[in-house]
């Protein structure tokens, strides 16, 4: 599982597209330079959003042995950053620029027991892992949580493939996943691999250490595209530079500041490294921290944020009343490095 993450760009053609759940498409790609994809790997690919080129990461759901066919799966998020809309516009025969498989989420062979936890479209990062564990005759459970069955990709094939090793939780069937109950059954030799919405991942991360489990055994991958709240439009100001920008729901604060000509530092662009950190000077609203860089304490302090993924929303009134319509946009005043 050598972690060679050199980006080798190449062309790939779309050879098949089909719908696998509501708003979810399975896309099969034929890359020019085939390389077998290990479980946990993903490809980066170039998308066009509002006429501008951008990069998105998608987990590889399936790879032929020789790597000549790679399957990815794309959820058209209602409030996506725009990449998924582009992806859903693809047709068979289209050509894309993609990387060879990259690995940030390696599966370690040899653990006593595995739990794979998928939330919604996060299942795409775990399908190949589950298959590998099955082939290796490992002790594993695939836990798959979603809003409704129609919105959960690959439910039926996974059930056929994994039988009793698949446990399904569906919100609208009142069988929602209970994180404390899930972790209560684990011992220190269990490795948990998860991919899903940030709410789920934060809940598991917080509960994990409280349950006395070993932190390195908790493995997760984030693509930095979900938050605790739905994205809203908001305003960012940098007084020192005289910059003010409005961030639409489909763009990140980092992207918007870059377009506004601010020289921004960054690396991962998915909320892991903390290099895109900005200092919050003033806040009219609430920060929706979508990173995995800050601790809970740091996030609550709300003095810094990772602008590649995190956003600002209007503060929800404490009494839970509907927000008055037409209320002005939330505003964050920051300084940058």
């Amino acid at each position: 599982m050598a972690a060679t993450n050199v980006e080798v760009w190449q062309h790939a053609s779309v050879v098949a597209i089909d719908q696998v759940a509501i708003d979810i498409q399975r896309i099969v790609l034929e890359p020019q330079l085939p390389k077998r994809a290990e479980p946990g790997s993903h490809v980066d690919l170039k998308v066009v959003i509002d006429g501008e080129q951008d990069k998105r990461s998608y987990s590889i759901v399936e790879s032929s042995d020789d790597g000549t066919r790679l399957t990815i799966t794309v959820f058209k998020a209602p409030a996506s950053r725009g990449g998924s809309v582009y992806m859903h516009g693809l047709a068979v025969g289209d050509r894309l620029e993609i990387t060879q498989p990259l690995q940030n989420f390696p599966l370690r062979i040899g653990a006593k027991r595995y739990v794979l936890l998928a939330g919604g479209i996060g299942v795409t990062a775990l399908v190949n892992m589950a298959r590998t564990l099955k082939d290796a005759r490992a002790d594993y459970t695939l836990v798959y949580a979603g809003r409704s069955r129609e919105a959960m990709a690959y439910l039926e094939p996974l059930r056929e493939e994994h039988g009793e090793n698949l446990v399904v939780h569906v919100d609208d069937e009142d069988t929602s996943l209970q994180v404390p109950a899930l972790l209560a059954g684990l011992d220190v030799h269990t490795e948990l691999y998860m991919c899903g919405p940030i709410r789920l991942m934060d809940a598991v991360r917080r509960q994990w250490t409280d349950s006395g489990l070993s932190y390195p055994n908790l493995r997760y991958e984030t693509f930095g595209n979900s938050g605790w709240f739905d994205p809203e439009e908001f305003v960012v100001r940098i007084p020192r530079l005289g910059v003010e920008a409005t961030i639409p729901t489909g763009r990140s604060m980092l992207e918007a500041l870059e377009s506004a000509g601010v020289d921004m530092m960054f690396d991962c662009r998915k909320g892991e490294c903390g290099l895109c950190e900005v200092r919050v000077l003033e806040l009219d609203g609430t920060i929706d921290h979508r990173d995995v860089f800050y601790s809970e304490r740091q996030q609550n302090a709300a003095t810094k944020m990772c602008c590649c993924v995190s956003r600002v929303i209007r503060t929800v009134p404490a009494d839970g009343r509907e927000r008055p319509a037409g209320h002005s946009l939330p505003v964050v005043t920051i300084d940058v490095s």
Binding site: R108, F293, Y294
Partner: peptide
């Protein structure tokens, strides 16, 4: 021994990608 980061002195949360390959 699995090559997983267990301590990252300069920050409060471990970067989830921080691993080095561990070989049988």
């Amino acid at each position: 021994s699995a090559g997983r980061c267990v301590s990252m002195p300069a920050q409060e949360v471990l970067n989830p990608s921080a691993t080095v390959p561990s070989f049988p």
